[in-house]
């Protein structure tokens, strides 16, 4: 149902752009006054299919996906979301062809450097960028740049962007367990003191509030090893599977998800309120 909106509104005619901006701003102001999710996770699926459908090169498909991400991030942060976690690269993605891996990594590096650049996003929205995942697997030529991204944004405290690269939840859980075992071995922690807090101490858990919504685009209905631990942390967190391909997932699609989430929160909160007054 939203397919008609972007085509009309992304017209480059200045007046249309201006009006579009005004409408977006007011919608954001409206949504802000209700319940807002604190932490959103995104699985950005469908760049390759988008390239295929539109008859463009694979690289342009990934490019379009990166643009969509910038759009959606802006929308989330403006509404008041504290943390966004994105599935940039899975450990399993190393199974792809070397050429595609290189394209993906190069693109990721460029976009992160763009976002962390002082004049752009990170500064404007006060976003701290964390690279989360098994860093040993990152090829050496990218590591210094990614460290730079983290270093540049580490003083930003208001919002967080967790870039999962290269990440799988099972790997994350395993490294948390190994980490606790190491601490026990170095006498830093006693076995009797191990509890849920000690185990859920990965970077995402430490820097971000509990997960509220996990969105996966392009119609696949599985989690593919992404944030399963964080999903089980909050029994009320919602999963949203949409059929839109990621490059087509823009402001209006995101707003619709935020609005419906906020609607159900408002209704459930009302229910709890009624129940407590009856007591």
């Amino acid at each position: 149902m939203f397919e008609m909106f972007p085509k009309f509104f992304t017209n480059q005619f200045p007046l249309v752009t201006y009006i579009n901006g005004l409408i977006e701003d007011s919608i954001i102001n409206v949504v802000k006054t209700g319940p807002v999710p604190q932490h959103i996770a995104l699985v950005m699926d469908g760049n390759r299919r988008y390239a295929k459908v539109n008859g463009i090169q694979l690289r342009s498909g990934h490019d379009a996906g990166a643009d969509a991400l910038v759009d959606v991030l802006g929308c989330c942060y403006r509404v008041g979301v504290k943390a966004v976690t994105i599935y940039a690269f899975s450990i399993e993605n190393f199974n792809r062809s070397q050429a595609e891996i290189n394209t993906l990594l190069e693109l990721l590096k460029q976009k992160l450097l763009y976002l962390s650049d002082t004049s752009h996003y990170a500064e404007r929205y006060n976003v701290r960028i964390n690279i989360v995942g098994n860093k040993d697997m990152i090829p050496d030529e990218f590591r210094s740049d990614l460290d730079k991204v983290e270093e540049l944004t580490r003083y930003h405290t208001k919002r967080t962007l967790n870039v999962c690269f290269p990440f799988t939840s099972r790997d994350d859980i395993t490294s948390s367990i190994a980490n606790v075992a190491n601490r026990v071995l170095s006498k830093e922690l006693a076995v009797a003191d191990i509890n849920l807090q000690q185990v859920s101490n990965s970077v995402i858990d430490r820097t971000s509030p509990p997960l509220d919504i996990l969105i996966r685009t392009s119609g696949h209905t599985r989690l593919s090893d992404f944030l399963t631990w964080q999903l089980s942390q909050n029994p009320t967190s919602t999963v949203v599977f949409t059929n839109t391909l990621w490059p087509n997932f823009k402001f209006w699609q995101m707003m619709w998800i935020l609005l419906t989430w906020s609607y159900y929160q408002a209704i459930n909160a009302g229910e709890i309120c009624i129940m407590t007054t009856n007591d």
């Binding site: 859980i173 967190s237 919602t238």
Partner: peptide
């Protein structure tokens, strides 16, 4: 669509 703390592994 809510997984109710289903075993994460």
């Amino acid at each position: 669509l809510n997984l109710q703390s289903y075993p994460p592994w």
